[in-house]
Design a protein around this nucleic acid. Sequence first.
DNA 1: CAAAGTAGGACTAAATTAGTCGTACTTGGG
DNA 2: CCCAAGTACGACTAATTTAGTCCTACTTTG
Lengths: 133, 133
Amino acid sequence: MLRLSKRVEYGLMALQYLAKSGTVATTREISASKNIPYELLAKVMQSLKSEGIIDSYRGVRGGYALLFSPESINLSRVVRALDEHTTITECISPSGEHGACDMFDTCTIKEPMNKLQLRMEESMGKMTIAELL
Amino acid sequence: MLRLSKRVEYGLMALQYLAKSGTVATTREISASKNIPYELLAKVMQSLKSEGIIDSYRGVRGGYALLFSPESINLSRVVRALDEHTTITECISPSGEHGACDMFDTCTIKEPMNKLQLRMEESMGKMTIAELL
DNA sequence: CAAAGTAGGACTAAATTAGTCGTACTTGGG
DNA sequence: CCCAAGTACGACTAATTTAGTCCTACTTTG
């Protein structure tokens, strides 16, 4: 259940790589260095870009680079960029509001689950890319 | 990724039910009351029993009952009883030691992930069945 | 001894996630 | 001005995990 998806694992490794190198690095380079399937990593990088965590440079000397300092990128943001399921239960929407769920009526654990969600997010929010170095 | 499995959701609802009733309740009764597939709930109850959280009474007036006070059953124990994946990554074994993983050599985020795992467990460990009432 | 319960293994179906393929677009340098 | 090296992205397939079902056995109380 609370296992990180490969997307998140790969994303964290890539961000760590970018943070260490401190400059532009290509998907192919990271993929080779960390032994990550290229095509999959490419998508992960795209997602990280569209979340605004990294920036891309096209063309022959292109690649990706961090858009912020490692200290200011926390894991909960990375997870949000890379996972579809960011919430502990179906009924919690990303913003913290309740969404729809088949069991909405009979379910009696919505509030406590919401509380737990916030605590988990807090745990992830406190950890940054800087702690991966 | 960090979504609770149905097994855990159902288990929590059942434990809440047992805590509220304060006495023996049958799987069929809980299943009907919470609208949970009976067969599945039955297995969940069995798992909760083998973890030592609840006790079972066979025969015509049988059912399940809590073995401890709601305050002393925390969520991390419930999750451990009901999920196969209790760890954030493949390389972390339940005890906190490192296990095997395909990427063991190239992976450079093992230690920080271990740290995160402990923090998540702490979050879940702090919440008890009593908070579901 | 029968009804109401738990116990548990084997199986199927559904959903999610991982990974692949193919094609288009962009940019800097010769 | 065109080619190589890069990103962008959608559609597809495969693998894994999770949910749910079925069937049969065992236990206990009235």
